[in-house]
Design a binder for these strands. Sequence first.
DNA 1: CCAAAAGCAAGAGCACCGCTCTCTATTTTT
DNA 2: AAAAATAGAGAGCGGTGCTCTTGCTTTTGG
Lengths: 265, 265
Amino acid sequence: MGAIRGARERARAEITAAIKEEAARQLGTHGPAGLSLRAVARELGMASSALYRYFPSRDDLLTALIIDAYDAVGAAAEHELAMLDRRQPAAQPVERWVAVCRAARDWAVGHPQEYALIYGSPVPGYSAPQDTVGPASRVGLALVSVVRDAHTAGLLGEPAGRPLAGPVRADAGRLAAELAPELPIRVIAALVAAWAQVFGIVSFEVFGQFNRVVEARSEFFEQAAVALAAQVGLRTDGGARDGAIAAGASAGSAGRGAGGVLPAK
Amino acid sequence: MGAIRGARERARAEITAAIKEEAARQLGTHGPAGLSLRAVARELGMASSALYRYFPSRDDLLTALIIDAYDAVGAAAEHELAMLDRRQPAAQPVERWVAVCRAARDWAVGHPQEYALIYGSPVPGYSAPQDTVGPASRVGLALVSVVRDAHTAGLLGEPAGRPLAGPVRADAGRLAAELAPELPIRVIAALVAAWAQVFGIVSFEVFGQFNRVVEARSEFFEQAAVALAAQVGLRTDGGARDGAIAAGASAGSAGRGAGGVLPAK
DNA sequence: CCAAAAGCAAGAGCACCGCTCTCTATTTTT
DNA sequence: AAAAATAGAGAGCGGTGCTCTTGCTTTTGG
């Protein structure tokens, strides 16, 4: 945080960064399993044992990369949202929602290995150290903020779905108290579901489950993101049909014409 | 396939099975990265080199396990559906849909490592050998069959969401031709999305993303599965409101009373 | 200012890994 | 019964994560 004190600390910071950089590079080419401390050290021209001064174990290096990845995708989402708001200050909630989703997806397809690291199978022992929970929630919080803004702007309708089962209601209530007390409980529940579902689609794309199934990935994703926004209760038009099911805008969805869902990319 | 011919072939089959069994055991305790051919051989009391008579490489062993896992979850889904139909021949399409989803989830939480193997990050080199695509699609096909049955029974409404973008329509059309020509294209698209979204929720649960977020996992999942069924167009009651948005049953959802979504487990 | 303390880099070494090669024993086929 | 195919064992190669010991440099404190 503070200013760098001596040459030693500066060197330490630089070398730590270089190690992470090279490790990330190897991660991109050989995958998480192929990340080798020795190879990193070799590439950096240092003895493998020296690397342990910076990361006490391979898992710690991986954890650092995990945190970086969470931060990267979180920052991408926040940045994309900020850009949209600057470009188009009166953007519809649905557009803002889709912007966040698309940012996450774009980052994922651009960094598949890093994505796999954080949203794929947890690594060997793995215990999800506490340091990861903050960065890990940034995308989710961005989604929450979009919905919250829509709510304060009066652009939030009823979420789809049946009334909540008791325990689900309890979870959602606890979450609501934590991060958005003004939002209806059902919206919170729908939001969490949508959050998981967005990443379900991204994971299927990145992990190859869509091979030979879905080819128009970005359009497909966009379509699903819009549907999920509706599911959460974000209105696609800021008008009538109060309290009605927001998802039900399909009938008269002149929307944006010509097949397009939202202005792509 | 055919009868076992000699003692040698029988032994080979048995040993192959034993290797896979032990490998699966190790997979469950140490994770995919911790699967060691030497350890498997050691546990089986044979030389590590002898193991290569059965699996030419570690990746081939993993591939075998992957196929087994796909088959296991697929069989679980099909079995659960068959059981429901036997127990309750007039089951609602939504119930059948949820049964398939729940079977997949139950298998996943019961076999997290095997689940990670097939729905988590792809393994090192990995090329998704052709042998996996058949088993891999069983759960998806089960979902398709549920929707198709609902359609022939006249219990399929309009799926939620806007009209499809062109390329998405093309993908869905191709898929429809392959596996369910009678279904509306939009239903196919919604189905694929729902398929990915179901596994998104399962993955978030199994991979720990729901830690400290969702505690009532099975109820939450059930809720989401029902919502996804509606999204696809499965009616929750076999009656009125033709062509209307099926998801819109929320208003008067007396449903099944007392917070419960569907008869659990 | 210089000695003590602390941090850093390197090398050797341990136990393990996937995998190959060679050699022998056994079974199947001809 | 001879020949061919198959199964197992062992040694060995290059790689891995990680530890320990040994020197060296920077920082610190009297």
